[in-house]
Design a protein around this nucleic acid. Structure first.
Length: 382
DNA sequence: AACTGACCCAACCGCAATGTC
DNA sequence: AGACATTGCGGTTGGGTCAGT
């Protein structure tokens, strides 16, 4: 394929945008929408390539962009999502309203990455640099469970991000005029429009931390809540839960049996107890999360058979659901690997299961507390 | 005041994915 | 089905700014 030469044409300007150029682009997009970015520069009277215009609009001129310092909450969100998603900035950006992927990426590279690095945490793996966790002969079952959880959350967050990007999500909007800007409303491009209401996916992060806290408080596996979003799989009331879910979970992701606003031939994924749905045209997309889970679990657990495309999976939280990830997590937390892991710096390091419970329980909290304690980069640990 | 190096971030580059004909 | 166009995305760069000497 021959690469587009749009930005290589002689006479096209590169480099920083002038206020005049910004004004031209802004005025044009507000009046006409951008339509084809390739054709836009000529129509708008700009000596720029379409790609440059798109970038400028997306990262700077869009009316729904928030600029300035990142809040503590935003920092936490970035760190947590990065731990789950890696460098998938566009996905992360969908969970940070009004922030662009470029801005988040820059902030990560210039601030957060260095901060974690100084703390002795590998900003790529979010593990301590000298970590032996999950490596060598000591690879524990608990580590595998944790890895599965991360993969599951990663897949789920990506699905939600896609949902946001594609504006497929059906969200009861309590603030129909929230966007306010007619300019943004006129923009036809999905990537340019103001994002819909913030997905509630971050509940999973809260839940993750919350359950850790509650577990530490309760000290009993009987009182476990889901550490992650819940996922129930039941078909025609014949529930074969893939992942056990305890009551009071904060976020649910389920394959619903009914009342989901999807057409036949699609598979609905319900988020947050029915507040949001995404319709997967491809079953394998809906099943993607499954594929990130333990291979020992059969795929048919979540796949409606061909004769029953609308066989939704029950979204109801099941108090009696068997243990799955919850079990895995509790196992990790209650009796995890024997590896001493300095990463869980907030915990009391000892060889007992209880000690490791506390260590693991402080996974996020330790990390975030350290970061929180040093918004200007001066952490107690360095 | 001048120089230097670190830092920051807007913008660019190029690959991949997706759309269109 | 395949070629081409367009868009999305993540990595990288380069120039402006600031702090330290």
């Amino acid at each position: 394929m021959v690469r587009s030469q749009c930005c290589d044409k002689v006479g096209l300007k590169k480099g920083p945008w002038t206020p005049e150029e910004d004004q031209k682009l802004l005025a044009y997009v507000e009046e006409h929408g951008h339509g084809s970015w390739r054709a836009l520069p000529a129509k708008a009277g700009l000596q720029r390539c379409g790609k440059s215009c798109r970038l400028r609009w997306t990262n700077y001129l869009r009316p729904d962009i928030k600029r300035g310092k990142f809040s503590l909450q935003e920092e936490q969100t970035i760190i947590q999502l990065h731990a789950l998603l890696g460098n998938r900035w566009s996905v992360i950006a969908t969970h940070l309203p009004k922030r662009t992927d470029n801005e988040i990426k820059n902030y990560w590279n210039t601030h957060l990455k260095k901060r974690l690095d100084k703390m002795g945490i590998d900003p790529v793996t979010h593990k301590p640099k000298a970590d032996s966790f999950g490596s060598g002969s000591g690879h524990s079952k608990g580590a595998a469970h944790l890895s599965h959880m991360a993969q599951w959350e990663s897949a789920r967050l990506e699905a939600e991000a896609r949902l946001v990007r594609e504006s497929k999500v059906i969200i009861p909007n309590p603030h129909p005029n929230r966007l306010g800007s007619t300019a943004s409303a006129q923009v036809s491009d999905k990537s340019s429009a103001a994002p819909p209401a913030r997905p509630q996916c971050l509940d999973v992060l809260k839940a993750w931390q919350g359950v850790v806290f509650s577990m530490l408080s309760a000290g009993s596996s009987d009182s476990l809540e889901s550490p992650t979003s819940t996922l129930n799989f039941s078909e025609n009331e014949l529930a074969i839960p893939l992942i056990g879910v305890q009551k009071n979970s904060a976020t649910t992701l389920a394959f619903a049996t009914n009342n989901a606003p999807c057409n036949g031939g699609t598979t609905a994924v319900e988020f947050n107890s029915g507040n949001q749905f995404e319709c997967f045209e491809k079953l394998n997309e809906a099943a993607q999360v499954k594929q990130n889970l333990d291979s020992s679990v059969a795929l048919h657990d979540i796949s409606p058979d061909a004769s029953n495309h609308n066989a939704w999976f029950d979204s109801a939280t099941n108090e009696n659901a068997p243990m799955g990830i919850v079990e895995g997590l509790s196992e990790i937390l209650v009796c995890t690997s024997q590896d001493h892991n300095a990463f869980f710096a907030g915990g009391n390091i000892n060889d007992s299961c209880g000690g490791n419970l506390e260590e693991n329980g402080n996974y996020w909290n330790s990390l975030l507390n350290l970061v929180d304690a040093s918004p200007t980069g001066t952490s107690p640990v360095f």
